[in-house]
């Protein structure tokens, strides 16, 4: 039985269709990523999974319990880290933790095992008001509060938005740690590059799931052939590109120009070189590169 079983979920807000026929299964113990831009429906789906919002239609089972009927039992077994800092800024680190522990009818000491590594880092600041912590520390405290009752599933809504790359990397290491303690992790992110950190991801756009797979499968299923070439005046080239007759996707990438061909490489590559030469362009070596999740997302969005 899957840990989370989402079947045919729909949700509307007035005229806006926030979620359209969502079907996802999350297995016990995996890190599952919901990847998509702002407004794609990630938060709405999170609110439904965390029993804060009711779906218009469809069925969601969390550990075999129904989100509509059994929501009180579900709440005892899930942890939630919201997208914005949602602790009491005037309560100290310690007070916040004790407060949420009590709300879950549990105590800080009972559940130290799961949060110990994070709590150690917070210990020097235990009497500081939560509002006066740095961004990274706030996030760690929020994580402690979400884990204080040893949940079976942890939901994290954009935990790394606005966080610098170093803290982000640290945060993902902590998540891996939590996963190893047998907690299923569902995390959403707008950062495409973080998708590779998940076991499986669902790409979501305008309320629709456009792909669910492992990051590696998604990348290996990229249909185009992606190349990079270094050159000057990339903007000038981009203005010429509509004269290039083959199907392709292209975008500037700093001092480089990235282009994905959708015809056979044997045909496309020489055609592109000829095109560059015809327009009197100076260019470096044209090298094949591995697409990243963003390239795949764009390709999938264009196909759907």
């Amino acid at each position: 039985m899957p840990e989370i079983d989402i079947q045919h979920i729909n949700k509307r807000f007035g005229k806006i269709e926030a979620l359209h026929d969502i079907n996802i299964m999350v297995e016990q113990g995996e890190v599952f990523g919901l990847v998509g831009p702002d407004g794609a429906g990630k938060s709405t789906l999170f609110n439904i999974l965390t029993t804060l919002l009711l779906p218009d239609s469809g069925q969601v089972d969390i550990m075999g319990m129904d989100v509509v009927k059994d929501y009180l039992q579900i709440r005892q077994s899930i942890g939630y880290l919201p997208g914005v800092f949602s602790l009491y800024p005037d309560l100290s680190v310690q007070e916040n933790l004790a407060f949420f522990a009590t709300m879950y009818k549990s105590s800080v000491l009972d559940n130290m095992s799961l949060i110990k590594p994070i709590w150690k880092q917070l210990l020097p600041f235990k009497d500081r008001p939560a509002g006066k912590l740095s961004g990274g520390m706030k996030q760690k405290l929020a994580l402690c509060c979400a884990l204080i009752h040893k949940p079976k599933i942890l939901f994290l809504d954009e935990p790394t938005t606005g966080v610098d790359p170093v803290s982000r990397k640290e945060f993902w290491d902590i998540l891996k740690d939590i996963q190893h303690k047998n907690v299923t992790v569902v995390v959403s992110t707008p950062y495409m590059d973080e998708a590779t950190r998940c076991d499986r991801i669902a790409l979501i756009q305008n309320g629709n799931i456009i792909k669910i797979d492992t990051p590696n499968n998604i990348i290996s299923n990229f249909r185009g052939h992606l190349y990079t070439v270094k050159m000057d005046d990339i903007f000038g080239l981009m203005q010429l590109m509509n004269q290039f007759e083959l199907t392709c996707n292209y975008y500037p990438y700093g001092e480089h120009f990235h282009i994905a061909f959708y015809d056979e490489v044997e045909k496309a590559l020489p055609a592109f070189e000829r095109f560059l030469q015809d327009h009197g362009r100076q260019y470096g070596e044209i090298k094949p590169i591995t697409p990243n999740i963003e390239d795949c997302f764009i390709e999938l969005m264009q196909m759907s």
């Binding site: 998509g36 831009p37 702002d38 794609a40 938005t161 606005g162 966080v163 610098d164 790359p165 982000r168 707008p190 495409m192 756009q205 005046d233 990339i234 903007f235 000038g236 981009m238 975008y251 500037p252 963003e294 997302f297 764009i298 969005m301 264009q302």
Partner: peptide, 29 residues
């Protein structure tokens, strides 16, 4: 937070502005 297609379009605008001689000073995560 914007979707990747829009992000690339946005960057095209940035390149265009830069090509017109506007200096772009950008912070990002």
């Amino acid at each position: 937070g914007v979707d990747p297609i829009v992000r690339r379009e946005f960057w095209k605008l940035i390149y265009q502005a830069a090509a017109q001689g506007i200096t772009i000073f950008v912070t990002t995560h």
